[in-house]
């Protein structure tokens, strides 16, 4: 399973999201710090899930970090996130 698939599997299992968009932006960072040739390291994720309703931005992001677990740090080097509830 590649990194994007792993992210999708973990977030789907944790949140049953109404929408989930994962972009692998690693190629944009070739030669930059944290980029490892052949390894996906930079991601942008937009997720919509009921679990985020009533939660602060910090709480939402912590929930996502927790769901990603050991993927954060290695192989994920950079992670941009938008986390919304369905009615937002």
């Amino acid at each position: 399973m590649n990194v994007a698939d792993s992210i999708r599997a973990r977030l789907t299992a944790a949140f049953a999201p109404a929408a989930l968009d994962i972009s692998d932006e690693s190629h944009l960072h070739a030669g930059h710090a944290g980029h490892r040739p052949g390894v996906s390291t930079h991601f942008r994720v937009a997720i919509v899930a009921a679990a985020f309703a009533g939660k602060s931005r910090v709480e939402r992001q912590r929930l996502v970090f927790a769901a990603l677990g050991d993927l954060m740090g290695n192989p994920i080097h950079a992670f941009a996130l938008s986390a919304k509830a369905p009615d937002e």
Binding site: R57, V58, Q61, A80, S82
Partner: peptide, 10 residues
């Protein structure tokens, strides 16, 4: 603690 880059931008 306020947040990271995404939260700051939003």
């Amino acid at each position: 603690f306020v947040g990271g880059c995404d939260i700051m931008r939003e």
